[in-house]
Design a protein around this nucleic acid. Structure first.
Lengths: 209, 209
DNA sequence: CTTTTTATAGATCATTTGCTCAATAAGACT
DNA sequence: AGTCTTATTGAGCAAATGATCTATAAAAAG
């Protein structure tokens, strides 16, 4: 075998600043684990990244540490902190607030990586998953219940389980799309607005407010 | 009836008829894989069953074969064949048909093993999962759309995506309970009936019919 | 009882997989 | 240029894991 590849761009090693390389690894790991599951092996991941497997352990002491970094990357900034206030801003119609939220939220979460990492981490009982759901309930859905109670014109009073039902019906679109890989509408916004309108109507809240 | 069962559980070796042993392995595998995921290893499974690991391979040529048997066991008889006719039986009020279906269906699927094996198999793209969902859409939800169209009194016409929304909102209860392990109502029937009523109301269908 | 059958156990193989470490070379600095 | 730092590699270890094979003993048959 002749040692030819001295300056071959593709096969020669490329040094990156540690911060950059670390981020590259995390990004690749997110895509990789989302696809094959969290038990995907580090050799395949390294191959996909175009680096050696041992390099991964230069940036993460254990595979679990890497997965933890994947979790943090994926869960980061998924719940914008300004939604609680926007959802309770009664200068905007309740319907509009709900549409704004779920339009924005669905574009954020109806993504292959998020949906699948979220589901995997949920199945394996990851703490971040539980914390996220508790947070969602506390700062989004619970205030939402209050807003709907306030706006309700029918004799029916909403309970928390109703809000989870609205939320679940919408989230289920993303589950069908990315977990089950079923054919789904390209744009879920119509399905969302119809679900929101049905929900509000049942509490006597007309589209106007 | 047989007195085989009085054998000492801790005794070194217990012979079972092959059919019985096979079923015991499949049952144990369902519980085991539901808990730890489909990558759970065969040694832990054997330990839990109280048999040697090599015995598993006497009944299943490969681990994949065992998992296939797990799938079949779990997916078997989950969709009763008489629901299509019951759901379209217009001598019963539409609301009652929906309540009957989802009450029965939720007791069938809101179970730890089913929910988790279904989700794992979905994530890994199992054929049985896709076939199940297609079947569900074809023989349950599609006819349901027809029934709601027929009974609708409002100007709104339901579309398939609305039915998936109703379905998803209900199924999400089981996902919260068994995938995310969140605190959930012990009995989901009230949440279900409220969701059904909201849905019907939005199409102008009163509880009477 | 003895013999036969075969379900089961125990030892073991061949890979796979997480992880380590010394050697190497890319890029920065003089 | 030459030197130094360190990001990266390649070889390899130890444990885990799917799978194999033969010896064993439980239960049935004679």
């Amino acid at each position: 075998m002749a040692k030819v590849a001295e300056c071959d761009e593709r096969s020669s090693r490329r040094r990156l600043p540690p911060g950059e390389r670390r981020q590259q690894i995390v990004d690749g790991a997110v895509a990789f684990f989302a696809e094959v599951g969290l038990e995907g092996n580090t050799r395949d991941l390294a191959k996909r990244l175009g680096v050696t497997q041992s390099l991964l352990f230069n940036y993460f002491a254990t595979k679990d540490d890497l997965i933890e970094a994947v979790y943090e990357q994926v869960y980061l900034n998924r719940l914008s902190p300004d939604w609680p206030t926007r959802l309770t801003d009664r200068s905007v119609s309740l319907r509009q607030r709900l549409l704004d939220f779920y339009t924005e939220y669905s574009t954020l979460i109806f993504q292959y990586e998020w949906m699948r990492i979220f589901m995997f981490s949920g199945l394996y009982g990851a703490q971040l998953n539980r914390r996220y759901l508790k947070h969602l309930g506390d700062v989004i859905l619970r205030p939402l219940l209050g807003e709907i109670e306030f706006a309700a014109r029918s004799d029916e009073t909403p309970v928390m389980e109703d809000i989870w039902n609205l939320h679940g019906g919408i989230v289920y679109i993303g589950i069908r799309q990315h977990i089950y890989r079923m054919p789904c509408p390209d744009d879920p916004s119509e399905a969302i607005s119809r679900a929101v309108d049905r929900f509000l109507l049942s509490f006597g809240i007309a589209p106007g407010d």
